[in-house]
Nucleic acid binder design. Sequence first.
DNA 1: ATGCCCTGCAATGCAGGA
Length: 261
Amino acid sequence: MRIATFNINGIKARLPRLLEWLEETRPAVACLQEIKTQDEGFPAEEFEKIGYKAIWHGQKSFNGVAILADGVEPVETMRGLPSLSDDDEPDEQSRYLEAEVNGVRIANLYLPNGNPQPGPKFDYKLRWMKRLRMRMHDLWQCETPAIVLGDYNVIPESKDTYSVRAMADDALTQPASRDAYMRLLGDGWTDALDTLNPRGGVWTYWDYQRGAWQRDHGFRIDHCLLSPELADRLISAGVDKEYRGREKASDHAPVWVEISD
DNA sequence: ATGCCCTGCAATGCAGGA
């Protein structure tokens, strides 16, 4: 089965591109980020028409995540990340949605960007990563096949950006961001795309500005992390790069993994 | 040092993204 992630940057503006991609590549599961719409504005019927059932966690104007499954209803297991302690606020932003699809736990995330850094937005990013790690500990304990995928907003290593220098002050490359990401890998999760492309140079995002796409000035921030049960079944992983070059494209390209059934 | 480009919301600009 193919499981994909796609930061679509606005589901209303992207709907034709999104439907086109679903029909052309037909992933079993598609995790979407930045749907940028409230729950009632989600075009579920458009996906039903082409055979996908969806669950979603929306928010007005910003953020928002959704899980689409081919022919089956995703069974929701969590909406938003749990607090770290009793005096910790629940997350008010719609950035996490988790479901079971065909015996696989699917955790879809849109991690905070964190710019500018340092500052409150960067602090929020790091706190959010702490919450995520706690949730991934629980998923690990379940010993069920699990994939935690989405827009992590972290460039893990120098080999994952066209220019180390251009990104030096960005929240995406800060040691604290990278450390938090590396801790997830240290816990035993497998970065699918990195495992199959150890030399790097694979991008999932190209800025709209400065002709970044035309100059191939990209970086890798959309990741698929696999539990050991799924890592053993990993066949291939890739980026649907071509979709970044189409009319009215998102600034991200879809990323996918192929898992043996 | 800042804007570049794009989206949504609402309004002829703004916040937020990365």
